[in-house]
């Protein structure tokens, strides 16, 4: 998918609107993380949002799949645990901005 096509997706635009208070560098970094995750799971952002929730039954259907992929994706980052967690949370924020929720990982100290 081209960069332009990625930014034109409605789900990406919704998430980008959620980042309006950030500077360009921060915003681009987060959007880039979404693009990397989309590639990681082999789906477009729009497909991810459509797939995780069944509109007819009003129930989640692939939440476990995405929850596991987010953990794998964040754990693949070579860095400290809090940076890995933050990377996973960018994906969770993307889902939240599009009305879907992947349960966060509770830090051990809580």
């Amino acid at each position: 998918m081209t960069d332009t096509a990625f930014h034109e997706l409605i789900t990406v635009q919704r998430y980008a609107a959620h980042l309006s208070d950030l500077d360009t560098k921060d915003r681009d970094a987060r959007l880039n993380t979404i693009a990397e995750f989309a590639e990681f799971v082999g789906r477009t952002p729009d497909e991810m949002i459509a797939e995780i929730f069944n509109e007819e039954t009003r129930k989640y259907r692939k939440r476990g799949f995405y929850s596991d992929r987010v953990k794998e994706f964040s754990a693949a980052l070579d860095g400290p645990r809090n940076r890995q967690l933050a990377r996973g949370n960018v994906i969770r924020s993307f889902f939240i901005a599009n009305g879907r929720r992947i349960p966060p990982e509770q830090p051990d100290w809580i």
């Binding site: 933050a86 949370n89 960018v90 969770r92 939240i96």
Partner: peptide, 8 residues
């Protein structure tokens, strides 16, 4: 969110 390891 950063402190609690939560998504924003």
């Amino acid at each position: 969110a950063g402190m609690f390891g939560l998504p924003e």
